[in-house]
Structures are given as C-alpha cells and as structure tokens.
C-alpha cells in the first residue's frame, strides 16, 4: 500500500512538473519582456566621467536582436536616454551579440542577445552642476523572437541614478591656508 502511495505521489509530481514546464514554454502564455536588474547608484565627481552598468535579462526561450544585427531590416536593440540638462550622456556601449542560427533560418546567422547582457553608459556631470542625486530616464527598444515566431517591438522604461559629488581637488582649493605664517 505504501509503495502504491509512493508511486501515486511520484506520478503526480511528474505530471504537475510536466504541466508547469509546458505552461512556461507555451509561447502564448508568456510575454518576452526584457527586464532591468537593480542598478546601484553610481557616484561621479562633477566635471568627470563615470560609467553606469545596466544589466538586462532576456527571458529563457527568447532572444532579441543585438545593437548591430547583420540584417538591415531587423530591429536593433537600442537604449535612448533623456538625461537632465547638466548630466551629459557621452557614450552608450553595447555588448557584442552572439551569432546564432535558428530553426527558422538554419543557413543564416543572426546576431542576438539572450540571457543576461550589460549596456554601459558613460556619464559626465558638468562642472557647474549642484552636487546631489540625479535620475536619468530612458527606454530600451527591443524586438524579441523565439524559435518560431517574432513579437512586436517593445520599449522597456529604464531609470538609473547618479550621485554627483564634488571632486577632492575642489575642496582643496576652497580650504583656508593651513600655516599661520601665511598671514605673517
């Protein structure tokens, strides 16, 4: 009797796992939503450049075109940022994609991102900016496919914060003379 119960339990587990796995894999049940992982606030001295790393994740079973797809008609992944006036976005660096072939085009290599990928943003607060925290907003434009179908282009809202600080050299300039002889 105990063996039978164990068998039932095991078969029920296999059944449930199978159904759960299928529900996950069924394209109609999932949306290929790229997500932005939590981003740390980066401190940057005003008048200097600093880098912010944005870590994105493509859900399993999907891929998105890289920033430089080989085929001109494919939608590239692109980060568009709208920074505050005194925060200059100097450069956005995308990772190299992976050349892959897919069942729908076995003879054609498509340059894609899948899983985790990181986009680096070079930011430079102007010298005149007030030292405080600033938010930079933007959108990641991407277009996802799985092995048999493609999904309309989407935009992921992106926000990261930059803490602008005074450079050490600025503090030195403003500090009073240390030696009393200086006034002598």
């Amino acid at each position: 009797m105990k063996r039978v119960n164990q068998g039932r339990l095991l078969s029920a587990a296999v059944f449930v796992l199978g159904v759960a796995g299928l529900a996950q894999d069924s394209p109609g049940n999932r949306r290929p939503s790229v997500t932005l992982q939590p981003t740390e606030v980066v401190s940057i001295n005003r008048g200097h450049s600093g880098t912010v790393e944005l870590n994105f994740r493509v859900p399993g079973g999907f891929h998105i075109n890289s920033n430089m797809p080989h085929q001109e008609y494919l939608k590239k992944t692109e980060l568009k940022l709208d920074a505050p006036t005194d925060i200059v976005v100097r450069k956005v660096t995308y990772p190299e994609g992976e050349d892959r072939t897919f069942p729908f085009a076995p003879d054609e290599k498509i340059n894609v991102y899948s899983g985790d990928f990181t986009v680096t943003v070079l930011v430079r607060p102007l010298k005149t900016v007030l030292p405080t925290k600033y938010a930079v907003h933007g959108n990641l434009k991407y277009q996802a496919c799985d092995n048999a179908a493609c999904y309309p282009p989407r935009q992921l809202p992106v926000t990261f914060e930059v803490r602008v600080t005074k450079a050490a050299s600025e503090n030195k300039k403003k500090s009073p003379p240390q030696s009393p002889r200086a006034h002598g």
Binding site: Y73, A149, C150
Partner: peptide, 8 residues
C-alpha cells in the same frame, strides 16, 4: 513584418 525572420 519585415523584421520578422520566420515570416521571411
């Protein structure tokens, strides 16, 4: 769509 590889 033009951006859809499987469509091609």
């Amino acid at each position: 769509a033009t951006w859809c590889e499987p469509c091609k």
